[in-house]
Design a protein around this nucleic acid. Sequence first.
DNA 1: GTAATTGTTGATCGTTCGGTCAACAATTAC
DNA 2: GTAATTGTTGACCGAACGATCAACAATTAC
Lengths: 167, 167
Amino acid sequence: MARPHSYDPEIALEAAMHVFWRDGYDLASLSDLQSAMGIQRGSIYKEFGSKKELFLKALDRYVKKFVDPGIALLTQTDGSGQERIERFFELAPRDETRGCLLCSSAAGVAGTDREVRKVVFDQLARLRNAFDTALIEQVTETSNRRSEAERLTQLYIGKRVEARTAI
Amino acid sequence: MARPHSYDPEIALEAAMHVFWRDGYDLASLSDLQSAMGIQRGSIYKEFGSKKELFLKALDRYVKKFVDPGIALLTQTDGSGQERIERFFELAPRDETRGCLLCSSAAGVAGTDREVRKVVFDQLARLRNAFDTALIEQVTETSNRRSEAERLTQLYIGKRVEARTAI
DNA sequence: GTAATTGTTGATCGTTCGGTCAACAATTAC
DNA sequence: GTAATTGTTGACCGAACGATCAACAATTAC
């Protein structure tokens, strides 16, 4: 009954995610996004609402693609928790100099935007809980386990942020 | 022989450092800096050259004020290395939600500006070396010590980046 | 006093930003 | 075919950006 889409919103979002991943929220301009997504500005706004909404959807996609598999690995039941934690830290390719969109956002836009900060906080909490689950055999005392899970989360963030400084 | 300065460049730089610390490089606008520094735009440019040069000088000041004392603690000779490392991680106040300017810059502007990236990389290397020095009693094997120093550096970055997500 | 020198100001520059919208295109229902 | 509906486009908007500069202010040397 009406003109059909000429582009796939999922593919456009995927492209936007990569721009935000590489450049961060602030440096990613609408012109950059427009080029990468292959659609015009008006279509971006009709489809995604605003730059910030587009970013939040791209971040959500990033989490589904790159964080959730790690959480699934940590919380699955085969193999020892220690093994799963080691495998978790091997998930990110060594040459991925873009780091982690979630971690970079923690250092960047999350510091100034409350809504983004909440999303980042919640996702990092999910990761912390997954570490906690993986530690349940090794560390029986709850508060010790919680602080070790906290340490592992911070270690993950540090690794992925440091990756962005590679020369 | 000429008109004297009406402001103290060191105090102005200190103010700029706090703006960059809170907002990051991109979000810190010249208007913000101007207000915080208490001098007009023209004077900022005459004194510091450009926004990026001002940022690099502010980052340098940040390192001198907040990173160097930590490095000094790690590399001093009294107390055990383990003790000094523990004290290092207690240097940052728990309620410092701005995190660490060096770490935030690693996740942010360092990803897109080569010059900033080099500075951040070098300063993180100094910190890594300081951890290595503090580990010299505990870990005698060189490559083990190096990877443990790397871990501690990443843990530090993670802690300070995570601090920015506090709700 | 005057001349020379340097610091300070704020208006102004061109550019880029995120965002909007009227015109046009493509489809379905009839 | 026409009408209705929705998708797409690119020109355009005001605002904010980083940066510049001519005019003015304050000091020293004489």
